[in-house]
Design a binder for these strands. Sequence first.
DNA 1: CGCGGTCTTTGAGCCAACGCAAACGAACCC
DNA 2: GGGTTCGTTTGCGTTGGCTCAAAGACCGCG
Lengths: 235, 235
Amino acid sequence: MSIDRDLLLGLSVFADLPFSEQHALAAAASLRSLQANEAVFVHGEPATDLCLVLSGRVKLTQSGWARDPVILRIVHPGEFLELGRSLRPSRHGATATALCGAVLAVWPTQVWRSLVREMPAIMTCLAQLLEQELSDAQGRFVEIASLDVPRRIAHALLRLVNQAGRKEAAGIRIDFPLSQQDLAALTGTTLFTVSRILTRWERRGLLAGGRRTLLVRDIPALTNLATAAETDRSA
Amino acid sequence: MSIDRDLLLGLSVFADLPFSEQHALAAAASLRSLQANEAVFVHGEPATDLCLVLSGRVKLTQSGWARDPVILRIVHPGEFLELGRSLRPSRHGATATALCGAVLAVWPTQVWRSLVREMPAIMTCLAQLLEQELSDAQGRFVEIASLDVPRRIAHALLRLVNQAGRKEAAGIRIDFPLSQQDLAALTGTTLFTVSRILTRWERRGLLAGGRRTLLVRDIPALTNLATAAETDRSA
DNA sequence: CGCGGTCTTTGAGCCAACGCAAACGAACCC
DNA sequence: GGGTTCGTTTGCGTTGGCTCAAAGACCGCG
Protein backbone atom coordinates (compact mmCIF):
# COMPACT_ATOMS: atom_id res chain seq x y z
CA MET A 1 0.00 0.00 0.00
CA SER A 2 2.93 2.31 0.38
CA ILE A 3 3.82 1.64 -3.21
CA ASP A 4 0.94 3.55 -4.68
CA ARG A 5 1.40 6.28 -2.15
CA ASP A 6 4.87 6.86 -3.49
CA LEU A 7 3.64 6.68 -7.04
CA LEU A 8 0.69 8.94 -6.41
CA LEU A 9 2.63 11.58 -4.60
CA GLY A 10 4.92 12.14 -7.53
CA LEU A 11 2.07 12.91 -9.89
CA SER A 12 1.51 16.41 -11.12
CA VAL A 13 -2.22 15.83 -11.01
CA PHE A 14 -2.21 16.37 -7.27
CA ALA A 15 0.57 18.90 -7.12
CA ASP A 16 -1.78 21.71 -6.10
CA LEU A 17 -3.17 19.85 -3.12
CA PRO A 18 -1.90 20.11 0.47
CA PHE A 19 0.17 17.14 1.62
CA SER A 20 -2.44 15.93 4.06
CA GLU A 21 -4.99 15.58 1.29
CA GLN A 22 -2.55 13.88 -1.02
CA HIS A 23 -1.91 11.33 1.66
CA ALA A 24 -5.58 10.84 2.35
CA LEU A 25 -6.17 10.12 -1.33
CA ALA A 26 -3.24 7.77 -1.55
CA ALA A 27 -4.33 5.88 1.54
CA ALA A 28 -7.76 5.23 0.08
CA ALA A 29 -6.49 3.84 -3.22
CA SER A 30 -5.82 0.25 -4.08
CA LEU A 31 -3.79 -1.12 -6.95
CA ARG A 32 -4.73 -3.10 -9.98
CA SER A 33 -2.38 -4.65 -12.50
CA LEU A 34 -3.34 -5.29 -16.08
CA GLN A 35 -1.77 -7.34 -18.79
CA ALA A 36 -1.74 -6.25 -22.39
CA ASN A 37 -5.18 -6.30 -24.04
CA GLU A 38 -6.96 -6.73 -20.74
CA ALA A 39 -10.15 -4.70 -20.42
CA VAL A 40 -10.54 -2.36 -17.46
CA PHE A 41 -14.20 -1.73 -18.08
CA VAL A 42 -16.67 -1.89 -20.92
CA HIS A 43 -18.90 0.73 -22.48
CA GLY A 44 -22.27 0.81 -20.80
CA GLU A 45 -21.49 -0.93 -17.55
CA PRO A 46 -21.95 1.01 -14.29
CA ALA A 47 -18.93 3.06 -13.26
CA THR A 48 -18.19 1.57 -9.86
CA ASP A 49 -14.56 2.62 -9.70
CA LEU A 50 -12.40 5.54 -10.65
CA CYS A 51 -9.02 4.60 -12.09
CA LEU A 52 -5.80 6.50 -12.44
CA VAL A 53 -3.07 5.15 -14.69
CA LEU A 54 0.22 4.81 -12.85
CA SER A 55 2.20 3.02 -15.53
CA GLY A 56 1.52 1.59 -18.97
CA ARG A 57 -1.07 2.92 -21.43
CA VAL A 58 -4.77 2.38 -21.72
CA LYS A 59 -6.92 3.15 -24.73
CA LEU A 60 -10.48 4.41 -24.48
CA THR A 61 -12.60 3.22 -27.36
CA GLN A 62 -16.17 3.59 -28.44
CA SER A 63 -17.77 1.39 -31.03
CA GLY A 64 -20.37 3.90 -32.04
CA TRP A 65 -23.10 3.00 -34.46
CA ALA A 66 -21.12 1.32 -37.13
CA ARG A 67 -17.77 0.32 -38.40
CA ASP A 68 -14.79 -0.57 -36.26
CA PRO A 69 -14.26 1.10 -32.91
CA VAL A 70 -12.87 4.62 -32.62
CA ILE A 71 -10.14 5.46 -30.10
CA LEU A 72 -11.30 8.44 -28.07
CA ARG A 73 -7.98 8.92 -26.41
CA ILE A 74 -4.93 7.15 -25.13
CA VAL A 75 -4.50 7.49 -21.41
CA HIS A 76 -0.96 7.99 -20.20
CA PRO A 77 0.51 7.61 -16.72
CA GLY A 78 -0.79 10.30 -14.39
CA GLU A 79 -4.16 10.56 -16.14
CA PHE A 80 -7.59 9.39 -15.07
CA LEU A 81 -9.92 7.05 -16.92
CA GLU A 82 -13.29 8.72 -17.41
CA LEU A 83 -12.88 11.08 -14.50
CA GLY A 84 -16.20 12.73 -15.27
CA ARG A 85 -18.14 9.56 -14.62
CA SER A 86 -16.99 9.52 -11.01
CA LEU A 87 -18.82 12.69 -10.06
CA ARG A 88 -22.22 11.07 -9.86
CA PRO A 89 -23.45 7.54 -10.37
CA SER A 90 -23.41 6.77 -14.08
CA ARG A 91 -22.35 4.29 -16.71
CA HIS A 92 -19.15 4.17 -18.65
CA GLY A 93 -19.17 6.02 -21.94
CA ALA A 94 -16.37 3.99 -23.46
CA THR A 95 -14.40 0.79 -23.20
CA ALA A 96 -10.95 0.86 -21.62
CA THR A 97 -8.29 -1.60 -22.72
CA ALA A 98 -4.66 -1.85 -21.72
CA LEU A 99 -2.26 -1.48 -24.63
CA CYS A 100 0.50 -3.09 -22.64
CA GLY A 101 1.11 -4.21 -19.08
CA ALA A 102 -0.15 -1.46 -16.77
CA VAL A 103 -0.80 -0.54 -13.17
CA LEU A 104 -3.78 1.49 -12.01
CA ALA A 105 -4.74 3.19 -8.79
CA VAL A 106 -8.38 2.46 -8.05
CA TRP A 107 -10.95 4.18 -5.85
CA PRO A 108 -14.51 2.95 -5.49
CA THR A 109 -16.61 5.87 -6.72
CA GLN A 110 -18.49 5.89 -3.40
CA VAL A 111 -15.28 6.39 -1.49
CA TRP A 112 -14.01 8.88 -4.01
CA ARG A 113 -17.10 11.01 -3.77
CA SER A 114 -16.92 11.14 -0.01
CA LEU A 115 -13.26 12.10 -0.18
CA VAL A 116 -14.09 14.92 -2.54
CA ARG A 117 -16.91 16.05 -0.31
CA GLU A 118 -14.60 16.25 2.67
CA MET A 119 -11.87 18.04 0.76
CA PRO A 120 -13.43 20.56 -1.59
CA ALA A 121 -10.07 21.72 -2.85
CA ILE A 122 -9.92 18.53 -4.86
CA MET A 123 -12.94 19.53 -6.87
CA THR A 124 -11.20 22.57 -8.28
CA CYS A 125 -8.37 20.33 -9.28
CA LEU A 126 -10.74 17.92 -11.01
CA ALA A 127 -12.56 20.64 -12.85
CA GLN A 128 -9.29 21.78 -14.33
CA LEU A 129 -8.51 18.26 -15.44
CA LEU A 130 -11.90 18.03 -17.09
CA GLU A 131 -11.30 21.32 -18.80
CA GLN A 132 -8.01 20.01 -20.15
CA GLU A 133 -9.66 16.88 -21.47
CA LEU A 134 -12.34 18.99 -23.04
CA SER A 135 -10.07 21.32 -24.93
CA ASP A 136 -8.04 18.32 -26.00
CA ALA A 137 -11.13 16.64 -27.37
CA GLN A 138 -12.14 19.80 -29.15
CA GLY A 139 -8.72 20.09 -30.69
CA ARG A 140 -8.92 16.61 -32.07
CA PHE A 141 -12.39 17.31 -33.35
CA VAL A 142 -11.19 20.29 -35.34
CA GLU A 143 -8.36 18.19 -36.68
CA ILE A 144 -10.51 15.39 -37.94
CA ALA A 145 -13.07 17.82 -39.31
CA SER A 146 -10.70 19.99 -41.27
CA LEU A 147 -7.52 18.11 -42.14
CA ASP A 148 -6.83 15.37 -44.65
CA VAL A 149 -5.62 11.99 -43.50
CA PRO A 150 -1.86 12.49 -43.79
CA ARG A 151 -2.01 15.62 -41.71
CA ARG A 152 -4.22 13.96 -39.13
CA ILE A 153 -1.70 11.18 -38.77
CA ALA A 154 1.18 13.62 -38.52
CA HIS A 155 -0.61 15.46 -35.73
CA ALA A 156 -1.37 12.23 -33.92
CA LEU A 157 2.26 11.15 -34.11
CA LEU A 158 3.51 14.46 -32.81
CA ARG A 159 1.10 14.28 -29.91
CA LEU A 160 2.31 10.78 -29.12
CA VAL A 161 5.90 11.93 -29.26
CA ASN A 162 5.13 14.57 -26.66
CA GLN A 163 3.24 12.24 -24.41
CA ALA A 164 5.24 9.07 -24.78
CA GLY A 165 8.48 9.92 -26.53
CA ARG A 166 11.66 8.32 -25.28
CA LYS A 167 14.89 9.63 -26.69
CA GLU A 168 17.11 7.16 -28.50
CA ALA A 169 20.22 7.38 -30.60
CA ALA A 170 18.32 7.07 -33.86
CA GLY A 171 15.39 9.31 -32.92
CA ILE A 172 12.46 9.38 -30.57
CA ARG A 173 10.65 6.19 -29.80
CA ILE A 174 6.95 5.96 -29.00
CA ASP A 175 7.26 4.19 -25.71
CA PHE A 176 4.44 1.67 -25.93
CA PRO A 177 3.17 -0.81 -28.51
CA LEU A 178 0.76 0.76 -30.99
CA SER A 179 -0.49 -1.04 -34.07
CA GLN A 180 -1.34 0.70 -37.30
CA GLN A 181 -4.86 -0.47 -36.67
CA ASP A 182 -4.82 1.61 -33.49
CA LEU A 183 -3.36 4.58 -35.29
CA ALA A 184 -6.19 4.30 -37.81
CA ALA A 185 -8.80 4.18 -35.06
CA LEU A 186 -7.17 7.21 -33.51
CA THR A 187 -7.34 9.31 -36.66
CA GLY A 188 -10.60 8.12 -38.16
CA THR A 189 -9.11 6.21 -41.07
CA THR A 190 -8.44 2.69 -42.21
CA LEU A 191 -5.56 0.42 -41.46
CA PHE A 192 -4.60 0.38 -45.13
CA THR A 193 -4.35 4.08 -45.58
CA VAL A 194 -2.20 4.36 -42.47
CA SER A 195 0.14 1.69 -43.73
CA ARG A 196 0.57 3.39 -47.09
CA ILE A 197 1.30 6.74 -45.53
CA LEU A 198 3.72 5.38 -42.97
CA THR A 199 5.71 3.39 -45.50
CA ARG A 200 5.94 6.47 -47.69
CA TRP A 201 7.33 8.47 -44.77
CA GLU A 202 9.59 5.60 -43.87
CA ARG A 203 11.10 5.62 -47.33
CA ARG A 204 11.80 9.31 -46.90
CA GLY A 205 13.56 8.66 -43.62
CA LEU A 206 11.02 10.52 -41.50
CA LEU A 207 10.47 7.54 -39.28
CA ALA A 208 11.04 3.84 -38.80
CA GLY A 209 8.31 1.43 -37.87
CA GLY A 210 8.15 -2.17 -36.88
CA ARG A 211 5.51 -4.46 -35.57
CA ARG A 212 3.51 -2.23 -33.17
CA THR A 213 6.54 -0.03 -32.94
CA LEU A 214 7.33 3.50 -34.01
CA LEU A 215 10.52 5.52 -34.09
CA VAL A 216 10.23 9.13 -35.19
CA ARG A 217 13.45 10.34 -36.74
CA ASP A 218 12.69 13.77 -38.10
CA ILE A 219 10.35 15.84 -36.01
CA PRO A 220 10.77 19.12 -37.88
CA ALA A 221 9.81 17.45 -41.15
CA LEU A 222 6.81 15.84 -39.50
CA THR A 223 5.75 19.14 -37.97
CA ASN A 224 6.04 20.65 -41.37
CA LEU A 225 3.81 17.98 -42.89
CA ALA A 226 1.29 18.52 -40.14
CA THR A 227 1.13 22.26 -40.64
CA ALA A 228 1.81 22.79 -44.34
CA ALA A 229 -0.97 24.38 -46.29
CA GLU A 230 -0.76 22.07 -49.31
CA THR A 231 -0.82 18.33 -49.06
CA ASP A 232 2.48 16.87 -50.06
CA ARG A 233 1.85 14.51 -52.89
CA SER A 234 5.41 13.44 -53.64
CA ALA A 235 6.27 9.76 -53.61
CA MET B 1 -30.82 44.08 -12.99
CA SER B 2 -33.83 42.16 -11.79
CA ILE B 3 -34.37 41.01 -15.33
CA ASP B 4 -31.42 38.69 -15.41
CA ARG B 5 -32.20 37.51 -11.94
CA ASP B 6 -35.55 36.29 -13.14
CA LEU B 7 -34.01 34.73 -16.19
CA LEU B 8 -31.19 33.11 -14.27
CA LEU B 9 -33.37 31.65 -11.59
CA GLY B 10 -35.37 29.67 -14.07
CA LEU B 11 -32.34 27.90 -15.49
CA SER B 12 -31.78 24.26 -14.79
CA VAL B 13 -28.04 24.89 -14.63
CA PHE B 14 -28.42 26.27 -11.15
CA ALA B 15 -31.28 24.07 -10.02
CA ASP B 16 -29.09 22.17 -7.55
CA LEU B 17 -27.91 25.28 -5.74
CA PRO B 18 -29.52 26.79 -2.64
CA PHE B 19 -31.59 29.89 -3.24
CA SER B 20 -29.18 32.18 -1.49
CA GLU B 21 -26.38 31.18 -3.84
CA GLN B 22 -28.58 31.48 -6.88
CA HIS B 23 -29.38 35.01 -5.85
CA ALA B 24 -25.77 35.85 -5.18
CA LEU B 25 -24.84 34.69 -8.66
CA ALA B 26 -27.69 36.57 -10.25
CA ALA B 27 -26.81 39.74 -8.39
CA ALA B 28 -23.25 39.67 -9.67
CA ALA B 29 -24.18 39.25 -13.32
CA SER B 30 -24.69 41.94 -15.87
CA LEU B 31 -26.41 41.70 -19.22
CA ARG B 32 -25.13 41.97 -22.74
CA SER B 33 -27.21 42.05 -25.88
CA LEU B 34 -25.91 40.89 -29.22
CA GLN B 35 -27.16 41.31 -32.73
CA ALA B 36 -26.89 38.61 -35.32
CA ASN B 37 -23.32 37.93 -36.46
CA GLU B 38 -21.84 39.95 -33.64
CA ALA B 39 -18.75 38.39 -32.07
CA VAL B 40 -18.71 37.80 -28.33
CA PHE B 41 -15.01 37.01 -28.22
CA VAL B 42 -12.30 35.84 -30.55
CA HIS B 43 -10.01 32.84 -30.43
CA GLY B 44 -6.81 33.68 -28.61
CA GLU B 45 -7.84 36.76 -26.73
CA PRO B 46 -7.73 36.68 -22.92
CA ALA B 47 -10.89 35.33 -21.30
CA THR B 48 -11.89 38.27 -19.13
CA ASP B 49 -15.55 37.34 -18.81
CA LEU B 50 -17.67 34.29 -18.42
CA CYS B 51 -20.89 34.33 -20.44
CA LEU B 52 -24.12 32.40 -20.11
CA VAL B 53 -26.59 32.44 -22.97
CA LEU B 54 -30.02 33.58 -21.84
CA SER B 55 -31.70 33.78 -25.22
CA GLY B 56 -30.68 33.35 -28.84
CA ARG B 57 -27.91 31.07 -30.09
CA VAL B 58 -24.19 31.45 -30.26
CA LYS B 59 -21.78 29.36 -32.31
CA LEU B 60 -18.30 28.47 -31.14
CA THR B 61 -15.90 28.16 -34.03
CA GLN B 62 -12.25 27.39 -34.45
CA SER B 63 -10.38 28.09 -37.64
CA GLY B 64 -7.77 25.45 -37.03
CA TRP B 65 -4.78 25.13 -39.31
CA ALA B 66 -6.47 25.25 -42.65
CA ARG B 67 -9.65 25.43 -44.55
CA ASP B 68 -12.80 27.18 -43.41
CA PRO B 69 -13.69 27.34 -39.73
CA VAL B 70 -15.19 24.38 -37.89
CA ILE B 71 -18.13 24.81 -35.54
CA LEU B 72 -17.27 23.21 -32.22
CA ARG B 73 -20.73 23.54 -30.86
CA ILE B 74 -23.84 25.63 -30.90
CA VAL B 75 -24.63 27.14 -27.54
CA HIS B 76 -28.27 27.22 -26.57
CA PRO B 77 -30.05 29.22 -23.86
CA GLY B 78 -29.02 28.04 -20.41
CA GLU B 79 -25.52 27.03 -21.49
CA PHE B 80 -22.17 28.66 -20.81
CA LEU B 81 -19.64 29.86 -23.34
CA GLU B 82 -16.27 28.23 -22.65
CA LEU B 83 -17.01 27.58 -19.01
CA GLY B 84 -13.66 25.86 -18.56
CA ARG B 85 -11.70 28.97 -19.36
CA SER B 86 -13.19 30.74 -16.38
CA LEU B 87 -11.52 28.47 -13.82
CA ARG B 88 -8.12 30.07 -14.14
CA PRO B 89 -6.76 32.94 -16.18
CA SER B 90 -6.44 31.79 -19.77
CA ARG B 91 -7.18 32.65 -23.37
CA HIS B 92 -10.21 31.73 -25.39
CA GLY B 93 -9.94 28.50 -27.34
CA ALA B 94 -12.53 29.46 -29.91
CA THR B 95 -14.42 32.34 -31.43
CA ALA B 96 -18.00 32.96 -30.34
CA THR B 97 -20.47 34.53 -32.74
CA ALA B 98 -24.17 35.16 -32.32
CA LEU B 99 -26.30 33.36 -34.90
CA CYS B 100 -29.19 35.69 -34.19
CA GLY B 101 -30.09 38.38 -31.71
CA ALA B 102 -29.13 37.13 -28.27
CA VAL B 103 -28.84 38.10 -24.63
CA LEU B 104 -26.05 36.95 -22.35
CA ALA B 105 -25.42 37.05 -18.63
CA VAL B 106 -21.85 38.15 -18.02
CA TRP B 107 -19.52 37.77 -15.03
CA PRO B 108 -15.97 39.10 -15.02
CA THR B 109 -13.86 36.00 -14.44
CA GLN B 110 -12.29 37.64 -11.38
CA VAL B 111 -15.66 38.07 -9.78
CA TRP B 112 -16.76 34.64 -10.87
CA ARG B 113 -13.77 32.97 -9.34
CA SER B 114 -14.28 34.69 -6.02
CA LEU B 115 -17.95 33.70 -6.03
CA VAL B 116 -16.97 30.10 -6.63
CA ARG B 117 -14.38 30.27 -3.90
CA GLU B 118 -16.97 31.48 -1.41
CA MET B 119 -19.56 28.92 -2.45
CA PRO B 120 -17.84 25.63 -3.12
CA ALA B 121 -21.11 23.91 -3.94
CA ILE B 122 -21.00 25.71 -7.27
CA MET B 123 -17.84 23.93 -8.26
CA THR B 124 -19.52 20.55 -8.16
CA CYS B 125 -22.19 21.95 -10.38
CA LEU B 126 -19.62 23.27 -12.84
CA ALA B 127 -17.69 20.03 -12.94
CA GLN B 128 -20.85 18.24 -13.98
CA LEU B 129 -21.44 20.75 -16.73
CA LEU B 130 -17.91 20.24 -17.96
CA GLU B 131 -18.43 16.50 -17.90
CA GLN B 132 -21.54 16.91 -20.00
CA GLU B 133 -19.72 19.04 -22.53
CA LEU B 134 -16.95 16.50 -22.62
CA SER B 135 -19.09 13.49 -23.33
CA ASP B 136 -20.93 15.52 -25.91
CA ALA B 137 -17.70 16.41 -27.64
CA GLN B 138 -16.60 12.80 -27.55
CA GLY B 139 -19.87 11.71 -29.06
CA ARG B 140 -19.46 14.09 -31.94
CA PHE B 141 -15.90 12.93 -32.38
CA VAL B 142 -17.00 9.34 -32.78
CA GLU B 143 -19.64 10.45 -35.22
CA ILE B 144 -17.31 12.32 -37.49
CA ALA B 145 -14.70 9.59 -37.25
CA SER B 146 -16.93 6.70 -38.13
CA LEU B 147 -19.97 7.84 -40.10
CA ASP B 148 -20.34 9.01 -43.68
CA VAL B 149 -21.56 12.48 -44.46
CA PRO B 150 -25.31 11.85 -44.82
CA ARG B 151 -25.44 10.12 -41.47
CA ARG B 152 -23.43 12.86 -39.83
CA ILE B 153 -25.89 15.42 -41.13
CA ALA B 154 -28.85 13.36 -39.98
CA HIS B 155 -27.39 13.15 -36.49
CA ALA B 156 -26.72 16.86 -36.41
CA LEU B 157 -30.27 17.63 -37.46
CA LEU B 158 -31.74 15.35 -34.83
CA ARG B 159 -29.62 16.97 -32.18
CA LEU B 160 -30.78 20.38 -33.31
CA VAL B 161 -34.38 19.24 -33.20
CA ASN B 162 -33.94 18.21 -29.60
CA GLN B 163 -32.19 21.37 -28.58
CA ALA B 164 -34.04 23.92 -30.62
CA GLY B 165 -37.13 22.26 -32.04
CA ARG B 166 -40.37 24.22 -32.04
CA LYS B 167 -43.50 22.32 -32.94
CA GLU B 168 -45.47 23.56 -35.91
CA ALA B 169 -48.37 22.30 -37.93
CA ALA B 170 -46.17 21.01 -40.73
CA GLY B 171 -43.42 19.55 -38.56
CA ILE B 172 -40.71 20.70 -36.21
CA ARG B 173 -38.89 23.90 -36.91
CA ILE B 174 -35.28 24.56 -35.98
CA ASP B 175 -35.83 27.69 -33.99
CA PHE B 176 -32.93 29.83 -35.15
CA PRO B 177 -31.35 30.77 -38.46
CA LEU B 178 -28.78 28.24 -39.64
CA SER B 179 -27.20 28.35 -43.07
CA GLN B 180 -26.10 25.27 -44.95
CA GLN B 181 -22.62 26.66 -44.63
CA ASP B 182 -23.02 26.40 -40.85
CA LEU B 183 -24.39 22.90 -41.13
CA ALA B 184 -21.34 21.97 -43.18
CA ALA B 185 -18.99 23.47 -40.61
CA LEU B 186 -20.84 21.54 -37.95
CA THR B 187 -20.45 18.18 -39.65
CA GLY B 188 -17.03 18.56 -41.23
CA THR B 189 -18.20 18.79 -44.83
CA THR B 190 -18.65 21.29 -47.57
CA LEU B 191 -21.51 23.58 -48.30
CA PHE B 192 -22.12 21.83 -51.61
CA THR B 193 -22.43 18.37 -50.23
CA VAL B 194 -24.85 19.59 -47.59
CA SER B 195 -26.98 21.28 -50.21
CA ARG B 196 -27.16 18.15 -52.36
CA ILE B 197 -28.14 15.95 -49.45
CA LEU B 198 -30.73 18.36 -48.10
CA THR B 199 -32.42 18.82 -51.46
CA ARG B 200 -32.55 15.07 -51.88
CA TRP B 201 -34.25 14.71 -48.51
CA GLU B 202 -36.50 17.61 -49.33
CA ARG B 203 -37.70 15.89 -52.47
CA ARG B 204 -38.52 12.87 -50.37
CA GLY B 205 -40.58 14.99 -48.00
CA LEU B 206 -38.30 14.46 -45.02
CA LEU B 207 -37.86 18.14 -44.48
CA ALA B 208 -38.36 21.59 -45.92
CA GLY B 209 -35.66 24.20 -46.02
CA GLY B 210 -35.50 27.84 -46.87
CA ARG B 211 -32.93 30.52 -46.59
CA ARG B 212 -31.23 29.78 -43.24
CA THR B 213 -34.34 27.90 -42.27
CA LEU B 214 -35.11 24.27 -41.56
CA LEU B 215 -38.32 22.40 -40.95
CA VAL B 216 -38.05 18.73 -40.13
CA ARG B 217 -41.15 16.85 -41.21
CA ASP B 218 -40.37 13.21 -40.64
CA ILE B 219 -38.28 12.46 -37.58
CA PRO B 220 -38.62 8.67 -37.66
CA ALA B 221 -37.31 8.56 -41.21
CA LEU B 222 -34.44 10.82 -40.28
CA THR B 223 -33.62 8.70 -37.25
CA ASN B 224 -33.64 5.72 -39.51
CA LEU B 225 -31.20 7.35 -41.90
CA ALA B 226 -28.95 8.27 -39.00
CA THR B 227 -28.86 4.77 -37.61
CA ALA B 228 -29.19 2.51 -40.62
CA ALA B 229 -26.29 0.21 -41.30
CA GLU B 230 -26.16 0.79 -45.04
CA THR B 231 -25.99 4.17 -46.64
CA ASP B 232 -29.16 4.92 -48.51
CA ARG B 233 -28.20 5.60 -52.08
CA SER B 234 -31.65 6.11 -53.58
CA ALA B 235 -32.45 9.32 -55.44
C1' DC C 1 12.40 -25.86 -36.09
C1' DG C 2 8.13 -25.53 -38.03
C1' DC C 3 3.48 -23.86 -37.25
C1' DG C 4 -0.31 -20.48 -36.54
C1' DG C 5 -1.69 -16.22 -35.51
C1' DT C 6 -1.08 -11.34 -35.74
C1' DC C 7 0.47 -7.37 -37.97
C1' DT C 8 1.85 -5.19 -42.17
C1' DT C 9 2.37 -4.37 -47.12
C1' DT C 10 0.84 -3.90 -51.85
C1' DG C 11 -2.16 -3.97 -55.83
C1' DA C 12 -6.38 -2.92 -58.40
C1' DG C 13 -10.72 -0.82 -58.80
C1' DC C 14 -14.26 2.23 -57.40
C1' DC C 15 -17.13 5.75 -55.54
C1' DA C 16 -18.43 9.42 -52.26
C1' DA C 17 -17.22 13.71 -51.57
C1' DC C 18 -14.59 17.70 -52.95
C1' DG C 19 -13.38 21.87 -55.86
C1' DC C 20 -14.67 25.03 -59.06
C1' DA C 21 -17.72 27.68 -61.91
C1' DA C 22 -21.83 29.55 -62.85
C1' DA C 23 -26.67 30.34 -62.56
C1' DC C 24 -30.56 31.05 -59.73
C1' DG C 25 -33.59 33.12 -56.14
C1' DA C 26 -34.94 35.40 -52.12
C1' DA C 27 -34.33 39.14 -49.00
C1' DC C 28 -32.67 43.69 -48.17
C1' DC C 29 -31.53 48.50 -49.04
C1' DC C 30 -31.65 52.54 -51.17
C1' DG D 1 -38.79 49.26 -58.19
C1' DG D 2 -34.38 48.06 -59.38
C1' DG D 3 -30.02 46.75 -57.96
C1' DT D 4 -27.06 44.40 -54.78
C1' DT D 5 -25.97 41.03 -51.62
C1' DC D 6 -26.19 36.72 -49.62
C1' DG D 7 -27.59 32.05 -49.64
C1' DT D 8 -28.69 28.03 -52.36
C1' DT D 9 -28.67 24.93 -56.35
C1' DT D 10 -26.65 22.27 -60.04
C1' DG D 11 -23.30 20.43 -63.39
C1' DC D 12 -18.92 18.57 -64.30
C1' DG D 13 -14.35 16.92 -63.61
C1' DT D 14 -11.11 15.11 -60.27
C1' DT D 15 -9.40 12.46 -56.56
C1' DG D 16 -8.46 10.95 -51.90
C1' DG D 17 -9.40 7.45 -49.40
C1' DC D 18 -12.08 3.15 -48.98
C1' DT D 19 -12.91 -1.82 -50.14
C1' DC D 20 -11.56 -6.21 -51.15
C1' DA D 21 -8.11 -9.65 -51.96
C1' DA D 22 -3.90 -11.65 -51.28
C1' DA D 23 0.67 -12.05 -50.16
C1' DG D 24 4.48 -11.10 -47.02
C1' DA D 25 6.95 -10.40 -42.54
C1' DC D 26 7.43 -11.16 -37.85
C1' DC D 27 6.48 -13.28 -33.31
C1' DG D 28 5.64 -16.58 -29.97
C1' DC D 29 4.80 -21.22 -28.97
C1' DG D 30 5.07 -25.93 -28.72
